[in-house]
């Protein structure tokens, strides 16, 4: 348990909710003076996972590692590195795990194609269902219904 190794106090937080969420009020000095660059750094940071937290980006977390990584991002932004270069630099050190949106590859194809797959599957099923029903009008009775009909008419 990585997080608890660093924050023993959190072991106490065995409640329903709590734990890793911390306040990311930090040193204002770490913000870049150039607002455009700062904005870019924030956007990159939002794509990087705070590794010792759960599902938080480094921009949202106050963990020391997140703070260090924020600094690295800002240094590289001011050094003129591209977004792609910074993400690659991070991935090289921490692996795919640090990307909150995984890169498209064979192993993540299902994940990224799911919106299209689900939509197409839904449309195809619905289209076939409506077509079937509009062609075969009225729908023929099933054996079950026919049996019930026979029973009903037999009784009368």
């Amino acid at each position: 348990m990585k997080a608890s190794r660093r924050f023993p106090a959190l072991l106490l937080a065995a409640g329903l909710i709590g734990g890793g969420v911390a306040l990311a009020v930090d040193d204002p000095a770490e913000m870049l003076p150039n607002p455009a660059q700062e904005k870019r750094a924030e956007a990159i940071g939002a794509h990087l996972r705070c590794l010792v937290c759960q599902n938080e980006s480094i921009e949202d977390s106050s963990a020391p590692l997140a703070r260090d990584l924020r600094k690295v991002v800002r240094e590289q932004v001011s050094a003129g590195k591209s977004d792609q270069q910074i993400m690659d630099w991070m991935t090289e050190r921490y692996g795919e795990f640090i990307r909150l949106a995984p890169q498209f590859s064979w192993s993540t194809a299902l994940l990224w194609l799911m919106p299209a797959l689900a939509l197409v599957a839904g449309l195809v099923i619905a289209w076939r269902a409506t077509r079937r029903r509009t062609v075969v009008t009225p729908a023929p009775l099933t054996d079950d219904e026919r049996a019930r009909l026979d029973a009903l008419s037999g009784r009368e």
């Binding site: 190794r5 590692l65 990584l69 690295v72 921490y94």
Partner: peptide
């Protein structure tokens, strides 16, 4: 300042 640790991919101690 933990910068070498980042190059090693260290997330904690």
């Amino acid at each position: 300042h933990g910068r070498v640790a980042i190059d090693w991919g260290v997330t904690g101690v």
